[in-house]
Design a protein around this nucleic acid. Structure first.
Length: 1018
RNA sequence: GGGCGAUUAGCUCAGUUGGCUAGAGCGUACGGAUCACACCCGUAAGGUCACAGGUUCGAAUCCUGUAUCGCCCACCA
């Protein structure tokens, strides 16, 4: 390979596929458990198979890959477990929409198996697309360990977990109001409900008291209730009022006669009820009467009240949204005469309101605009509908409270009352859960303190079928050879090869937990662990038992992800090595949905945390602060960005944007690609592309200068030139800062440090400084070559986690050109970069004195460049030719500085664009000179004197200096005022005081020489 | 309604426990085809740190309040 033949622009497309294949061929991403090393493990937040990955995933996975690659280079036993999530509702919905659009058929037009097969096909397609996207991004996952939340390994874990929870009595069947879509007759998840503002009414209905009540001398016969849904009054089972309502003491305990149905219902006390206040800003208080009709079957809040007061639950609706006495309503009273039965809920509303009006029981009607949930599918208002659901009792001490106890002490808010109550002093786990940024610990804590039982059943087809059977009908003859009576509790049991089946004889409740390995019974239903045992299932079905049609909430399998991926319930080496994992990296929206549940299940099943650290990264938004989404058309596709900018550019840019902020704005713009496609892109990736190109070219330049290099020798750093020691010292500090930054998840900081070091120090200064040395063979050149190679070697390592492709490619080139690198110590260079050692900090490479000297020289050079620019600006304004170099300059300074400057004179002249430079402490200032004053750390002045009389019309320079002087005066007077302030002098710390005094001295020195210049210019 | 975050240069953002003349990239202006890089090099201009109070010798930073924007959770009287 000839370095000079490499293109002068980095082309990622030539590099990325080749390098990724190189990594795969070498199996560098694969890890086996190795007890001799420190484990480091991240399990990927499994992307949903609903759609291709978006920029948020790119961010999420970039950060994980940075950490994984960094830890791999540290020599840890590092593994990154990849996989995808079946995402129940979301995936089924996507496929339903597509099948409807393409075939015009609905889900219910298919058999369950047929439709699941369609979803499966979609999943296969998207899973493979997602995995290839991850590869394109450069993710170094252990692909041999790829999992899917519904694959056999994960499914087994799901059944095991369900079974164990069931056995512990932590899974139960309960009633719940679901979001029911009466049009499609399906239950909807909360996020499938669209809130719409509706112009509705408040109807004020008068309910007659069974007996009049006297309050403060006034006789009350009716109480008014306000409702937006009068038709639900048929299911009312109480009227509630607030205990602070002055009327409560007269009315609570009395009864009202529910109109139409003639049901006598109690007046109860519940502080959920809002006190009426016509002047209130709060809409509820403004419209309230103080009396709330309670309809437990048709309103979630009423349901809660009903639970608190043991109220009957009367469902007056059929699944299609019509009024019906077939679903739990028996005391229909006058409803049939009114013709209400069979009416649609909105027709019924009109009839009922009309009836109240006719009977003089309608007190008032007020218009009211409010938001009502609508089905995203049928767009009809959803109906809260009572149904049987399965729950995990996470309120149990072993779940929610265990998670609270696992929080790191310093992140747990000990001030809240609840926290004190719930957090015992004793620690049960060695590891503790830490959040980064810390503020998210609060989200986690609050959620667990207010947790409610987790409804895990979903009325879907796509997902893990709930492994519960119930007895519908029939009995097994006692004479059946396969049955034996187990005990006198009414159980019938089948036993074969140590497998047991149990069922209740009469279908009634059985409160026994059956210690079989496969089945557990509770109430009149039972759980079977091994649903793949066809023989067993066959017998059960023969008994007349049927499996629950519902599937588990997607988050149930996700909750097990940190250990299901590692083979649990088997005690695999991988599980013992990498659980707890090191880190979970995700977005804040799923702290409660997912993080919390992983913590609870891992603690419950394995008595340890799923991971020690949680890093919550930002959410990406477009330029207007809106979420990136398909419907807004503002999403940016990672593959488009990789095509346009390269994966490394995308990764670096994303890492550089990752500060502790909770949102990242990414202005999006449309652009035509060469192939004619229109894509969404963002200028924010320019920074990464430019940086990648800079690295490419600096490496190219470095390697060009290494082609004729001899083998490296051990170097004594102290004997090297000033600039060599400077870059080595700066690099050493960069290593230190970057290592610390990655360890504390400060991705933007790490990115900024390496950027500044590489571009502003290595390229802008060091490479320029050594150019003269490269022109002449000899020891100086040799040493510079060795330092150059060292710097490139180390920076490629530092850059690798963020920009893996480019650096691995350059590493291979460098290996060809200059295979052994060495400074004071030999470096190990013969491994691929992906598994090379991370740079180490060496205290003796740090040289602050040299850094200070170099800083002075840099300031000096910048000052010369400034004068040259000023001169050329004036000349070009006057249509005169600009100078490439200034012809002559003088420097006046102290002895110490004179030595430094004389020493570095060629360098100053070359980089400061000065032809001739004279250092003379006694020099006279020629008339018409510009004088610039720098101050050294010692406080002494260095004066740069550049005679300008011959070069420009000095009048314009005078104006500039006058302006500068005026600004300086302002600073000086402010500084003097502060130092004259008695309390500042007496109260500020001595160090700060000294700094201010020194600053003032510097300012005065500069004023002096500016004044002098001005005088000279006259 | 509850919680969280943001407001700093034209744009996108840094700014660690309060302390040098508040920084970076892009953009702008001016100069530059100099043999690594024009996706580049050099120089410069540009900010009442959202607003109002307070604490302090000293506030972008801490406290209180206000405004605007955003996110999460809850929400059908």
């Amino acid at each position: 390979m000839k370095v000079s033949e490499l293109p002068s622009q980095y082309n990622p497309r030539d590099v990325e596929p080749k390098i990724y294949q190189f990594w795969l061929d070498g199996k560098y991403f694969h890890a086996e458990p190795d007890p001799s090393k420190k484990p480091y493990c991240i399990v990927i937040p499994p992307p949903n198979v609903t759609a291709a990955l978006h920029m948020g995933h790119a961010l999420n996975n970039t950060l994980q890959d940075i950490l994984i690659r960094y830890h791999r280079m540290l020599g840890d036993n590092t593994v990154w477990i990849p996989g995808t999530d079946h995402a129940g509702i979301a995936t089924q919905t996507v496929v339903e929409k597509r099948v409807l659009a393409e075939e015009g058929r609905r889900r219910t037009d298919f058999k369950r198996e047929e439709f699941v097969a369609k979803i499966q096909a979609w999943k296969d397609q998207y899973e493979s697309h997602i995995l290839s996207q991850l590869k394109a991004m450069g993710c170094s996952c252990d692909w041999d360990r790829t999992r899917f939340t519904m694959d056999p390994t994960c499914a087994r874990a799901v059944r095991e977990a369900f079974f164990l929870l069931f056995k512990e009595g932590l899974i139960y069947r309960g009633k719940r109001l679901v979001n029911w879509d009466p049009a499609t007759q399906t239950a909807l998840a909360d996020d499938e409900v669209e809130m719409q503002e509706i112009d509705g009414h408040f109807w004020y209905l008068k309910y007659p008291l069974t007996e009049p009540v006297e309050i403060d001398g006034e006789t009350i016969e009716y109480i008014p209730v306000a409702t937006t849904r009068p038709e639900t009054m048929l299911g009312d089972t109480a009227v509630a009022m607030n205990s602070r309502d002055p009327r409560a003491k007269f009315l609570v305990g009395k009864k009202v006669n529910l109109p139409i149905v003639n049901r006598q219902i109690p007046i109860i006390e519940d502080d959920y009820v809002v006190l009426p206040d016509p002047n209130s800003e709060d809409v509820k208080a403004k419209y309230a009467t103080g009396f709330l009709k309670v309809t437990p079957a048709h309103d979630p809040n009423d349901y809660e009240i009903g639970q608190r007061h043991n109220l009957p639950i009367i469902n007056v609706l059929a699944p299609d949204g019509t009024i019906s006495d077939q679903h739990g309503w028996t005391d229909i009273g006058g409803a049939e005469e009114l013709g209400l039965l069979g009416l649609d809920r909105y027709e019924a509303r009109e009839s009922i309101v009309e009836w109240f009006r006719e009977n003089d029981l309608l007190a008032d009607v007020k218009p009211y605009r409010h938001s009502v949930g609508h089905s995203y599918r049928s767009h009809v208002p959803i109906e809260p509908y009572l149904s049987d659901q399965w729950y995990v009792q996470v309120t149990d001490n072993r779940l929610a409270n265990a998670a609270l106890r696992a929080m790191a002490d310093d992140q747990h808010d000990k001030n809240t009352e609840q926290a004190n109550k719930r957090k015992p002093q004793k620690k049960s786990w060695e590891g503790k859960l830490h959040f980064y940024p810390e503020r998210y610990a609060k989200t986690f804590q609050t959620w667990h303190e207010n947790i409610r039982d987790w409804c895990i059943s979903r009325q879907l087809w796509w997902g893990h079928r709930i492994p519960i059977w119930s007895i519908k009908e029939g009995k097994i003859p006692a004479s059946d050879q396969r049955i034996k009576f187990f005990d006198d509790l009414g159980l019938e049991v089948y036993e074969k090869q140590n497998r047991l089946v149990a069922r209740s004889r009469d279908g009634g409740p059985i409160n026994i937990h059956f210690h079989a390995d496969y089945i557990d019974i509770s109430e009149s239903y039972f759980c079977i662990k091994d649903i793949n045992d066809r023989e067993l299932i066959g017998i059960i079905e023969e008994f007349g038992c049927v499996q629950d049609p519902d599937v588990l909430d997607t988050w149930f399998s996700s909750a097990l992800w940190p250990f299901s991926t590692l083979g649990w319930p088997e005690k695999t080496d991988a599980l013992e090595t990498w659980n707890p994992g090191s880190l979970l990296c995700t977005a804040r929206e799923i702290i409660t949905l997912w993080v919390s549940r992983m913590v609870m299940t891992n603690l419950f099943f394995l008595d340890r945390l799923p991971f020690d650290n949680v890093y919550i990264h930002a959410m990406l938004q477009d330029g207007q602060g809106r979420k990136m989404s398909k419907s807004l058309g503002n999403g940016v596709d990672p593959l488009d960005i990789i095509e346009k900018y390269g994966a490394d550019a995308m990764r670096y840019s994303l890492a550089a944007l990752t500060t502790g902020m909770q949102d990242i704005r990414m202005p999006v713009k449309k652009e035509k690609m060469p192939d004619g496609r229109e894509i969404n892109t963002s200028d924010r990736f320019d920074i990464g592309r430019n940086f990648a190109n800079k690295i490419w070219n600096a490496a190219r330049f470095t390697m060009m200068n290494l082609e004729d290099a001899e083998s490296p020798q051990p170097l004594a750093i102290k004997s090297l030139t000033r600039e060599d020691r400077w870059i080595i010292s700066r690099l050493n500090q960069a290593v230190d800062q970057i290592t610390t930054a990655i360890d504390t998840y400060e991705f933007a900081e790490a990115s900024a440090v390496i950027y500044r070091f590489f571009w502003n120090e290595f390229c802008d200064w060091y490479l320029e400084w050594i150019k003269p040395r490269m022109r002449q063979a000899g020891q100086s050149k040799q040493q510079a070559q060795q330092v150059l190679a060292f710097c490139l070697d180390q920076t490629l390592r530092l850059l690798h986690p963020a920009m893996p492709y480019l650096t691995e490619q350059l590493w291979q080139y460098l290996h060809e050109i200059y295979p052994n690198r060495m400074l004071d110590q030999t470096l190990v260079c013969d491994k691929p970069l992906v598994i090379s050692d991370w740079p180490k900090v060496c205290a003796d490479r740090c040289d602050l004195a040299v850094e200070q000297e170099m800083e002075q020289l840099q300031n000096l050079i910048r000052a010369f460049r400034d004068v040259r620019t000023t001169v050329n600006r004036i000349r070009s304004a006057n249509k005169e030719k600009s100078f490439n170099e200034l012809p002559f300059a003088l420097i006046r300074c102290g002895v110490e500085q004179a030595k430094l400057i004389t020493d570095a004179k060629p360098m100053i002249c070359e980089l400061g664009y000065v032809s001739d430079l004279k250092v003379d402490a006694q020099a006279e200032i020629p008339p018409g000179s510009s004088v610039k004053v720098l101050t050294c750390p010692s406080g002494q002045a260095i004066e740069l004197i550049i005679p300008l009389a011959e070069l420009i019309d000095i009048g314009q320079e005078k104006v500039r200096i006058e302006k500068e002087l005026a600004e300086l005066e302002g600073h000086i007077s402010r500084s003097e005022a502060r130092l004259a302030n008695e309390s500042f002098v007496s109260k500020a710390p001595p160090k700060v005081l000294e700094e201010h005094r020194q600053k003032l001295q510097e300012l005065k020195t500069r004023r002096e020489s500016l004044t002098l210049t001005l005088a000279e210019l006259k």
